[in-house]
Design a protein around this nucleic acid. Sequence first.
DNA 1: CAGGTTCTGAAATTTCTGATACAGGTTTTC
DNA 2: GAAAACCTGTATCAGAAATTTCAGAACCTG
Lengths: 295, 295
Amino acid sequence: MNQSGMRGKSRLPPTDPPSLAERIRLEMESFTPSEKRAAHLLLSHYPFAGLDTVAEFASRAGISAPSALRFVSRLGFGGFPDFQKHLREELEAQLLSPLAKSGPSDKGQGAPALASFAEAVIGNLKATVENIAPAEFEAVVVLLSDPRRHIHFTGGRFTGALARYAESHFRIVRSHVDFIEGQPALWRDRMIEIGRKDVIVAFDIRRYQEDVTALCETAARQGATVVLLTDPWLSPIARVARHVLPAHIVAPSNWDSSAGLLLLTEALVAAVTKRLWETAKPRMEAVERLRNGKL
Amino acid sequence: MNQSGMRGKSRLPPTDPPSLAERIRLEMESFTPSEKRAAHLLLSHYPFAGLDTVAEFASRAGISAPSALRFVSRLGFGGFPDFQKHLREELEAQLLSPLAKSGPSDKGQGAPALASFAEAVIGNLKATVENIAPAEFEAVVVLLSDPRRHIHFTGGRFTGALARYAESHFRIVRSHVDFIEGQPALWRDRMIEIGRKDVIVAFDIRRYQEDVTALCETAARQGATVVLLTDPWLSPIARVARHVLPAHIVAPSNWDSSAGLLLLTEALVAAVTKRLWETAKPRMEAVERLRNGKL
DNA sequence: CAGGTTCTGAAATTTCTGATACAGGTTTTC
DNA sequence: GAAAACCTGTATCAGAAATTTCAGAACCTG
């Protein structure tokens, strides 16, 4: 083609690979039946199913070798070795740089609703990160990495799900982790056990929930350390909280977005997992064995 | 529950992975010069350097093909294909496990950790949005806006929290919304009620959970419409799903990130709320009144 | 239901890879 | 310092893998 083709937004990203898996998924409809079988096998064990020989791949997909060849040829590869090379390179790239994907997004027609919503959420995430005091984040990581502490997660009617999400991860990384329902009737009794050794991690965003506040105040009064994930206007829990991590939540919706809270949660999980790696690794392996054995 | 934690060290975990890379490092001293060159190449691009052809591998290592063959033979493999098969299996096992990355990657501290994590998540969100077929998203919105349908949310051990999050919002916007636990014992009975009028919204990312798959397959067999939120490699549920929304999930962590799934969830909630506004508004007000009155 | 198109797999063909034999060169050993 | 043991690369070969051919099957289409 001519060289002036680079101008404007008509440029095709030369080295920005939309994972082959995605392309396959998008073109799935236009595949013939046996091509679909090949595609499904490949996607279900992506990309390893494609690294065997053609014969093996075809047999596992339940089709003939020529059909498998036609499949990869249809994807634009010159031959099966080409195809495999691409898979290997993609895999290597993904494994070496987890941040591989990004770049100025060329959002074409797209679902405007989804795109603009995503834009707002991304803005929230950036604002959230910029407004977190690094020392505060680090302090929470240290706190949650202390094996002698007992960690309790709780949240309101919407944020309760985030607390559950956090709990399901931390439970695997370390011991003494649980989830407390927000309703007073459900936690009143348990408060007897809460003391200096305990950490309450509370999720609470606006229309702050009185019962969650009550829980945290009670716990704090008994000497527990309270960590609060909230919005920039700060839940009343902030008064009794030792550490506060605020996240931006405004989105083009009738509802607030919890993406910033999820980001903080996942970042905390990642950091604590890394910090406790020596003990977390065998623990995760043990959980894995139990799952495999008992399931 | 895990009170007996530290005891009983006598039994070592049976599934300790003796990575080939480790063995090579240990035996390095006993290698001949050209074997060392091969070993160094392999370790420096482990394991991808070994996945090419013998000729390529040898040439990159600066040795002859026969020397490369002797190298793998010396490691105890019957031949080069055997060797490659082992590498692939090792890679696959590591990639599918959350233990994939080990500790020694000491990157930044504190704030950098959060910032780079956020960067990766933002990249995931962009990639997710770009790869959603607008028609698919819209179709799901229409489906979930149909007041005659019954909506059931479900998910795996981590994604279950997202399903709960979705449910807690949709429950307020419209009627006939509930959450189904993933364990078969808990949903078997309820399946009798599932039929053409029902929609199952399933959250399932890699290490796909068999019980969730079973639930969806059963529901689909009975005529229910299945909507799947998954990762780009597609949960097996995709086979029975009417609509699939994939989200990017890879993050610099031992865990996958669900932020993309949350984004889709919140965007769906926003879109459905808007679409159903005429009926949703009075409903939301009523819920509000109930909460204020009863609390 | 005929005519045409598309899809598919068995078998033949080609290409290329992995493996081996052998000889030249290097190091070790006495 | 010579013989033995050991490495290593060139040339060659056997066999496996990918690819192409072609005919039959399935599927439209009018």
